[in-house]
Design a protein around this nucleic acid. Structure first.
Length: 439
RNA sequence: GUGCCCGUAGCUCAAUCGGCAGAGCACUGGUCUGUGGAACCAGGGGUUGCGGGUUCGAGCCCCGCCGGGCACCCCA
């Protein structure tokens, strides 16, 4: 047998059964996004390379880039946020602000693949451009919670922090600003490597131990958000950056509470340090404590990004869910039941004399809106046809032979039980429609 | 991008020290010309991921590439 080529590293194929599950998830997300007034857009997969560069910091090395036929330097989009900023800059006179859009599409990263980490994966983004109001950030968190709830994602929590608090940490520690990202890297690993690990990570990067302890002590503040805010206000007094961040977080949490967002699904996490360069305000990360698959989504406010393209500053905030990780979790755990096939029924063929009757029946059913197959294989023994239906998971078959045709009847077979009933051909459509209404 | 583990039939795996490439499941056909899942019988299917090297001889040893996984980096 000839060897088929493999797919590219980090990319994968999806079988029909998997696609039906993916589409179910996507439809759920779409529904939730639209419930909040987000509307769909689409942008090209490929952008000019310069559109993508200079936005992601160190991650920039993971951009898939190449030259096209005209020797233009181009790149596959790395996320949907930078293309959105470019989109808004291009169309700002045609948009109604605050602009709310969702975008569900594949993105590409030239990363080394692992479980839950692919080179091509789908992101599901909802963003609001053109308002600094924390209400927009609250909507983003809330839409996330609703989206993940809609697909029964187990044990997920949206962790919330603020970029301005993070930026103030170097000042708190009394170390140079260049050390800020070192501090972020260290505290972000707290849950993974523990307090001692965090301290030694900072110390080994030339941060004095007492400074490291001050930082750790500060970000370890836990408890009811209200109390934490009070403590932080005291301890960070005089630090303008931190005070701004705290003020914003307080109103964000206030809005969330008023909206009735389930507090089990969001939490203040001062150790959350999102890496992307363009974040400027609240930052969010969706994690599942149950599923060991890393982050389900990342989000945050990026007030400067649109301005990088248009000169006109437009504040923005938004969220991004990674479909592949979500899909892997619900597939592994069987969390969402989706029928294995789109076909509701299949009409069988008896022989050359009756094939016309089978075809006209299937045509009628299709015109009436029933998803209906006829067996298109070459050999028409009933055994083969039932086996096909069985393997595909088609719930019923319609058996139509000379006897039935003569009497104006059909046999409706339940594939699960093998139960059969004879009914008038004219009643078949009604019966099938009733069944699909129940499903 | 760095380090490590792995790759044998569609799937899961076996093959002693380097010595004739196998099994179960799946698939195809039949038992069964108006009834799927079960049983029984038979059959097809492999350049052992790809390419090179060492050797009388390589699935096994060495090198490169492709692909999978883990850790790091980072991330959805």
């Amino acid at each position: 047998m000839a060897r088929a080529p493999q797919v590219l590293r980090g990319m994968r194929d999806f079988l029909p059964e998997q696609m039906l599950l993916r589409q179910h998830v996507l439809n759920s997300f779409r529904e939730v996004f639209e419930r909040y007034g987000f509307e769909p857009i689409e942008t090209p997969v490929i952008e000019y390379l310069e559109t993508l560069t200079g936005k992601y910091g160190e991650d920039e090395k993971l951009i898939y880039s190449f030259q096209d036929r005209g020797e233009r330097d181009v790149g596959l989009r790395y996320d949907l946020t930078v293309p959105l900023a470019r989109f808004v800059a291009n169309h700002r006179n045609e948009l109604n602000f605050p602009f709310k859009r969702y975008h569900i599409a594949p993105v590409f990263r030239a990363d080394r693949p692992q479980r839950g980490r692919y080179r091509e994966f789908w992101q599901c983004d909802a963003d609001i451009v053109g308002t600094k109001s924390m209400m927009a950030d609250a909507e983003v968190v809330s839409v996330w919670i609703d989206a993940l709830s809609a697909i029964n994602m187990p044990g997920f929590v949206v962790h919330i922090n603020h970029r301005k608090l993070l930026m103030s940490l170097a000042e708190v520690a009394g170390v140079p600003n260049e050390q800020t990202s070192t501090i972020h890297r260290a505290i972000d690993k707290l849950a993974k490597i523990g307090e001692d690990g965090v301290i030694s990570e900072m110390v080994s990067n030339d941060i004095p131990e007492d400074a490291a302890r001050r930082v750790l002590d500060l970000v370890s503040t836990r408890g009811e958000p209200g109390h934490v805010f009070e403590q932080l206000v005291d301890r960070l007094q005089g630090n303008t950056l931190a005070e701004e961040g705290l003020t914003e977080l307080r109103s964000l949490f206030g809005y969330l509470e008023s909206m009735g967002a389930d507090p089990a699904h969001y939490t203040l996490d001062l150790t959350l340090a999102r890496g992307l360069d363009y974040y400027t305000g609240p930052v969010f990360e969706a994690l599942s404590v149950d599923a060991n698959i890393g982050s389900l989504g990342g989000a945050g406010r990026y007030d400067g990004l649109v301005g990088m393209f248009s000169g006109e500053d437009l504040p923005a905030t938004g969220c991004s869910l990674g479909l592949e990780r979500i899909f892997d979790v619900i597939q592994e755990r069987n969390l969402v039941g989706v029928p294995p096939t789109v076909s509701q029924t299949m009409v069988t063929i008896f022989n050359e004399e009756t094939v016309g009757d089978s075809l006209s029946l299937v045509g009628e059913l299709r015109r009436a809106g029933i998803s209906c197959e006829i067996y298109v294989g070459e050999r028409w023994d009933l055994r083969r046809q039932l086996q096909y239906a069985n393997r595909k998971g088609i719930p019923t078959t319609v058996i139509l032979g000379p006897d039935e045709i003569k009497r104006g009847e059909v046999i409706l077979r339940e594939m699960e039980t093998g139960e059969q009933s004879t009914l008038a051909r004219s009643d078949l459509l009604g019966v099938l429609q009733a069944r699909s209404a129940h499903a």
